[in-house]
Design a protein around this nucleic acid. Structure first.
Lengths: 251, 251
DNA sequence: TCTGGTGAGATTGAATACAATCGCAGAATA
DNA sequence: TATTCTGCGATTGTATTCAATCTCACCAGA
């Protein structure tokens, strides 16, 4: 028996976390922005305690930087990191795809598919449909979020919590890099998702891994193509990198 | 690396976080253990609020799992994840090594080396010396922590906060896998660190990357060799918390 | 004996209250 | 005028308190 499912209300702190992360990744909160606990608490209609918990989690994920008694600011992604992030993401995602395919094969072999797996798989179907609709109607603005949900959905399917946690960080950062440039991508990239899922459903780990690697790589190339020309690519982060003294002379 | 300033007292919440993560990684808290906020608060002499913040951060890092109103438990690492974690770690660490080498070259080229970089580099020297002493005196018990500090130190040197955050997760989990088996590794593995640093200091990104990749790979092979025989590898998670007491007895 | 409901105690979620610290404007001084 | 000092407001860190929810032993009924 599924004992609960009241997450609707049961997660004030979680709600703030998700909303904040979403705002950061999608660009509503730009890097360098200072956020005060009180303001966030007012915005989300909660006290400062759940806000602080959310900020600590985001700090661990690398989306926020905090200094004692000096507050929290949205982190910046140094430009140099971009290419490296794509490289790491490629490994994580293709590994996830392979694992997902293996797990799918298990599920179909078993008599009764795992409940959790099944709902994750169904959620992916919805995400794919929503994305296709968005592409068809040129609502490209919805794609970044759907994209994140797709990739996290595959991670869910893989059953590896360790890899999922890693992906959540890195995938978020990658999307973040794109946040300033939503319209540029999407259409062609989104189409590749169906074939990845097909390989996973077929239990074909080799294909799934290869397709996902290619998918990430084309994403990487798209990014570099877009920004490579200008020596000083301006993704959300590069606005202002403090040159030297950043850490601590006050007093 | 603390922001240095008055870290001694200014970081009650941070202190709890570091201590808890250390206890988890080094095996003092075994996977599956339920931790209550009140107990942790008492243990560290603080109230529940900083404990909660630390738990949220650890949850984001994947070391702890929580359910609303049901408390937190130390996460388990499914056995299947082990090999994948090594693969991802290999990419992250070799990328970090390459970046660190590039950054070292920059530092030596510049007139005045960056302060932060310099202290990170110096810290690494201390870590290497401490590790060598530990190896010489057979104090292998100290190696796991020194090992973590070494790899995070290199990450610090690379200057990539994104990669550092990722490494903190995955490296911690890898060490965690080893927590039950400290004596097996260490000596030979530790020796490789000096050559990695040498390549970084020389600004040789290619060598640094290659050496680090080899280092991680030998670590992976060591792990698999150790556990591959028994179909049911017993990393911390499967050791079961009742039978043989726990992690104190490798000496 | 087994199944399923029930209530008390334990534990977490969140709000409020208060202490500690920082940043900054403006005064005092050379 | 430039510089240092000082006090106040703003903001964060933590403790305390109360409400909401879960866990688990216990018990009624089949």
């Amino acid at each position: 028996m599924r004992p609960l499912r009241r997450e609707q209300d049961a997660a004030a702190s979680q709600r703030v976390l998700d909303a904040l992360r979403r705002d950061i990744i999608l660009g509503a909160l730009t890097p360098g922005t200072r956020v005060t606990e009180a303001a966030l608490a007012a915005k989300y209609g909660v006290s400062r305690v759940p806000v602080r918990e959310a900020l600590r989690a985001l700090e661990a994920e690398g989306f926020v930087e905090s200094r004692p008694y000096a507050g929290s600011t949205i982190a910046e992604i140094p430009l140099d990191d971009a290419a490296d992030l794509f490289a790491v993401r490629g490994v994580i995602e293709s590994t996830i795809a392979r694992r997902a395919a293996g797990r799918a094969a298990e599920q179909f072999a078993a008599d009764a598919p795992n409940d959790r797996w099944f709902s994750a798989r169904r959620a992916l179907t919805d995400i794919l449909d929503d994305g296709d609709r968005a592409v068809a109607s040129d609502a490209l603005r919805e794609l970044p979020e759907l994209n994140i949900r797709f990739h996290l959905g595959v991670a869910e399917l893989s059953g590896s919590t360790s890899l999922t946690a890693l992906l959540r960080q890195i995938s978020g950062k990658i999307e973040w890099l794109y946040a300033v440039d939503v319209d540029n991508r999407g259409k062609q990239s989104w189409g590749e998702h169906r074939s990845i899922i097909a390989a996973i459903d077929a239990g074909n780990g080799t294909d799934a891994e290869r397709l996902m690697a290619g998918h990430v790589d084309s994403s990487r190339r798209g990014y570099l193509e877009r920004f490579a020309g200008s020596g000083t690519t301006p993704p959300p982060g590069s606005a202002r990198r403090s040159a030297g003294r950043d850490a601590g002379e006050r007093g």
